[in-house]
């Protein structure tokens, strides 16, 4: 049941149209950051305003929405955003990756492979992958325009010289379609390979920085590396304590004050499905 007094999906139609135009441009130039006019949202910047604006612009009455925060469906942020869209758009929501048509995510890609027709919307705090290396925005734009990305490799070189390996565990820079350097938003490097040639459409919204970018289906997304130091996704070396998975990305949970800890899947839907399947088998 849609709340009264709001336009469908909270944003007004003109704003949606403006954001859709930015999205079309972003899809046409994969990995390129397109500016858009971020609107005031009923939650503060940094809580997913960019992602919500994008979701609000692409959602339709027939969509089924899933929202995750660090892979979990049941955290405050995920629950609030899901409830928000249930209220202002009257859409169905779900926790099942396979059943959702739109998945808004903060900092994870679901373990279950996505398929054609699904849209993955990322919440992005900082869209510029070069911002720690080059403080001048005008200069970073020029570097993107000229595909002048030597500086990013200098950063990787420095990591290997200092630590023996590339010490970036999340927000690991990628090259999209062989052209644009892109920040994958702070997903773990473990998730980077899932972006490459993904059948689903990936949209990125940065509310505070007012940038939208996109990766169309089946676009190549390569993590930067060296020939003799190839990209290696990191994962805690343990099975999930709840479902036993050795493939999924794990969260480390401290369980007492004596150094006790356990590793569990960060993707709650994936973990629950596996646990249910195991119980059914027993």
């Amino acid at each position: 049941m849609t709340a009264l007094g709001y336009n469908f999906g909270y944003l007004d139609e003109n704003t949606k149209r403006m954001i859709r135009r930015a999205l079309l441009k972003a899809v046409a130039v994969p990995g390129h950051q397109v500016p858009f006019g971020a609107r005031e949202m009923p939650l503060p910047y940094g809580w997913g305003t960019g992602g919500i604006a994008v979701t609000a612009s692409v959602i339709g009455a027939g969509d089924r929405l899933k929202v995750i925060d660090q892979g979990a469906d049941d955290t405050t942020n995920a629950v609030s955003i899901r409830r928000f869209f249930a209220k202002v758009a009257g859409v169905e929501t779900t926790e099942r990756t396979g059943e959702a048509t739109i998945i808004q995510t903060r900092h994870r890609i679901p373990e279950t492979g996505l398929r054609e027709g699904q849209i993955l919307v990322y919440q992005v705090p900082m869209p510029e992958p070069l911002f720690r290396l080059e403080p001048r925005v005008a200069e970073t734009r020029r570097m993107h325009a000229l595909a002048d990305y030597g500086l990013m490799h200098v950063k990787l070189y420095e990591d290997i010289a200092r630590h023996g390996h590339v010490a970036i565990s999340y927000n690991y820079p990628v090259l999209v379609g062989g052209r644009y350097l892109m920040s994958p938003s702070p997903i773990p490097a473990f998730d980077n390979p899932k972006m490459d040639r993904m059948p689903a459409l990936q949209l990125f919204g940065a509310g505070r920085e007012k940038r939208i970018y996109a990766v169309p289906p089946y676009t190549s997304v390569k993590s930067l590396d060296f020939e003799d130091h190839p990209f290696r996704p990191v994962r805690a070396d343990a099975p999930c304590a709840l479902c036993g998975s050795r493939e999924s990305y794990l969260d480390e949970v401290v369980v007492d004050d004596k150094g006790g800890r356990m590793f569990v899947c960060s993707d709650t839907d994936y973990c629950n499905t596996r646990q249910a399947a195991r119980e059914a088998a027993e």
Binding site: D148, G150, L151, V154, Y157, F226, E227
Partner: peptide, 23 residues
């Protein structure tokens, strides 16, 4: 950036992607 990184920057800017060779 370290001395090695400074020297390597131009090499990487023109496409060198082998850490051992750059070093």
């Amino acid at each position: 950036v370290s001395a090695g990184g400074n020297i390597g920057e131009r090499l990487m800017a023109v496409g060198a992607r082998h850490y051992g060779q750059i070093r």
